[in-house]
Design a protein around this nucleic acid. Sequence first.
DNA 1: GATAGATGTGACCGTACGCTTACAACTGTA
DNA 2: TACAGTTGTAAGCGTACGGTCACATCTATC
Lengths: 90, 90
Amino acid sequence: MKINTIRDLAATIRGRRLDLSLSQAELARTASVSREWVSEFESGKSTAEIGLVIRVIEALGLRIELTEYEDVPDSSALDLDSILQEYREK
Amino acid sequence: MKINTIRDLAATIRGRRLDLSLSQAELARTASVSREWVSEFESGKSTAEIGLVIRVIEALGLRIELTEYEDVPDSSALDLDSILQEYREK
DNA sequence: GATAGATGTGACCGTACGCTTACAACTGTA
DNA sequence: TACAGTTGTAAGCGTACGGTCACATCTATC
């Protein structure tokens, strides 16, 4: 599942939790976070701490991957230039 | 790049930044975070806010993916059971 | 040697985290 | 109709976030 925004991340985690038929309380207990935190995070809380997010992801049997962003599969060489261009502008 | 811990995430982001020959200050400016924050995050700060982390990842031309965790490629069906087992143990 | 850039670290401060407790709304189920 | 479970919020609190300055260290390049 490709994640572009915090809402994507929140929705993916909620979807996975429901796929496993888990309550927020069950997930929270396994990930050692509060149930309230799970509720707010699933609503898209962008200020959540990355450490807790990782614990929840792990508790759901998911893994994070970081890949190079590619909109169009056949222009990988140009993408890096477009990224650097953004830095070089002044 | 598979991410299992915060240190993995930090190292991957630092590696990507260096691959692009960017300074912490350049990355910070593009991602709208402080240079000091980049320094501390690259050291593995687990309390960093997910919103800032996502901004930095995007600024580096990277994308997050969430996939099902699979240790052994040929036992995908059993993995889900092992996950649920952890929840069902009282 | 001197200067500039990159990086790590510390102090200070306004703000908000995450946890706990509590309550309300909703859904099934006995 | 009760009862239990799930979920969303809100208040209160201890703590630490992230930004800003400031300083020290370490390279390069002049």
